[in-house]
Computed example of a mutant assay.
Amino acid sequence: MKDTIVPGLRIETRRGFTVLTLPAQISWQNYAGIREGVSRALSLAARPPAAGSGTGGRGAGVVVDFGDAVLLDAAGLVLLARAETRARLLGCQLRAVVPDASAPVRRALDATGLGRLVPVFPDVASATAAPPPGRRRTSPADTADVLDAIRALHPADAALAPAPSAPSELTITTAAAPDGDHTVVHLAGVLDQRTVPRLGETLTSLVEGDLRHLMLRMSARLGLRCDPLPILLGIRWRVAAEGGCLSLLEQPAKLREIIDREGLGSVFTACRTAEPAA
């Protein structure tokens, strides 16, 4: 039995296990479709197997195969934590496959404690060859601490994905807004783990130079390879304490998604109406 729910997501059966192969990239953009696939896989595993299948009273369990998938944010970790809780409620086992023990996915599982809740195997063959345990108790698992750890990863979502091989560039220019109070900071290029610190240094220098009404204008083509919220929030809190503001103009879609996810849409607004410089 094979099925495709979202591009790159596959469900099949091996040795009585329902194996869910994840797409090459996992993020909040395809989270809903993958969550549906995981839910379906768990429902299939919880059904009593066909007569003569030799797997006992129910399916052996579910194997979530990360393969070569890249976590663009913490969506995959939230998905796995919630799937572990549902698997316990259904009384079936959940296993994960992460081929490389040093991969960002494996480091994230260890950092959040998920690796202690979900058995991790190097490949699907070993995951499906290990004998399934007996029926598990159906009390819910306490994953609150795991989810808290995952939330703590949000400011460092980029650490879940490999750094780009090519050097990245970020161009930062400033201009005075027509109102005479605000300073417009123009960004072009790429924001990643290498360039975000430089943005922080630039904004800090402006603040220390008594420019506390800042408007950050991002090019429509600005590449976003990490979560810049820690830097932006730090500057925002600093200027707000002195009656200033940090507003964001023309945010890239991925940044808007992160801000909406964190419920911070109202934070990055100007403290007074200002017409930005073109």
Results as ranks from 00 to 15, higher is better:
Met1Ser: 15
Lys2His: 14
Lys2Trp: 06
Gly8Gln: 01
Arg10Cys: 04
Ile11Thr: 15
Glu12Tyr: 13
Thr13Pro: 02
Gly16Arg: 05
Gly16Trp: 09
Phe17Leu: 05
Thr18Pro: 02
Val19Asp: 00
Val19Met: 02
Ala24Glu: 15
Gln29Glu: 12
Asn30Ile: 05
Ile34Tyr: 02
Arg35Leu: 07
Glu36Ser: 14
Gly37Lys: 06
Ala41Thr: 01
Ala41Lys: 08
Ser43His: 12
Ser43Gly: 12
Ala45Glu: 13
Ala45Met: 12
Ala45Ser: 15
Arg47Val: 08
Pro48Lys: 02
Ala50Gln: 14
Ser53Tyr: 08
Gly57Trp: 08
Arg58Cys: 08
Gly59Thr: 07
Gly59Phe: 03
Val63Gln: 04
Val64Met: 06
Asp65Met: 06
Phe66Ile: 00
Gly67Lys: 12
Gly67Ser: 11
Val70Thr: 15
Val70Asp: 09
Leu71Met: 13
Leu71Trp: 06
Asp73Ser: 10
Gly76Asn: 07
Thr85Phe: 01
Thr85Tyr: 07
Arg86Ala: 11
Arg86Asn: 01
Arg88Val: 00
Leu90Tyr: 04
Gly91Lys: 08
Gln93Pro: 11
Leu94Asp: 15
Ala96Val: 13
Val98Lys: 03
Val98Gly: 03
Pro99Tyr: 08
Pro99Lys: 08
Val105Thr: 15
Arg107Trp: 10
Arg107Pro: 04
Ala108Val: 00
Leu109Met: 14
Leu109Tyr: 13
Asp110Cys: 03
Gly113Ala: 04
Leu114Thr: 00
Pro119Arg: 07
Pro122His: 05
Val124Thr: 15
Val124Pro: 12
Val124Gly: 12
Ser126Gln: 10
Ala127Ser: 05
Ala127Gly: 01
Ala129Arg: 14
Ala130Lys: 06
Pro133Thr: 09
Arg135Pro: 10
Arg137Ala: 12
Pro140Arg: 09
Ala141Ser: 13
Ala141His: 10
Ala141Val: 08
Ala144Pro: 05
Leu147Ala: 03
Leu153Phe: 08
Leu153Tyr: 09
His154Glu: 15
His154Leu: 01
Pro155His: 02
Asp157Ala: 04
Leu160Ala: 07
Ala161Cys: 06
Ala161His: 08
Ala163Ile: 01
Ala163Arg: 14
Ser165Arg: 13
Ala166Met: 01
Glu169Tyr: 05
Leu170Asp: 02
Ile172Gln: 00
Thr173Arg: 15
Thr174Cys: 09
Ala176Ser: 10
Ala177His: 12
Ala177Met: 09
Ala177Pro: 06
Pro178Leu: 05
Asp181His: 14
His182Tyr: 11
Thr183Pro: 03
His186Met: 10
Gly189Glu: 07
Leu191Glu: 05
Gln193His: 14
Arg194Asp: 12
Val196Gly: 04
Arg198Asp: 14
Arg198Gly: 08
Leu203Gly: 02
Ser205Thr: 14
Leu206Glu: 11
Arg212His: 09
Arg212Pro: 01
His213Leu: 01
Leu214Gly: 03
Arg221Leu: 07
Arg221Tyr: 02
Cys226Thr: 15
Asp227Trp: 07
Trp237Phe: 01
Val239Ala: 01
Ala240Met: 10
Ala241Asp: 13
Ala241Phe: 00
Glu250His: 13
Pro252Gly: 05
Pro252Ser: 11
Lys254Val: 12
Arg256His: 06
Asp260Leu: 07
Arg261Glu: 09
Glu262Arg: 11
Glu262Val: 06
Leu264His: 02
Thr269Asn: 00
Thr273Met: 05
Thr273His: 10
Ala277Tyr: 02
Ala278Ser: 14
Ala278Thr: 12
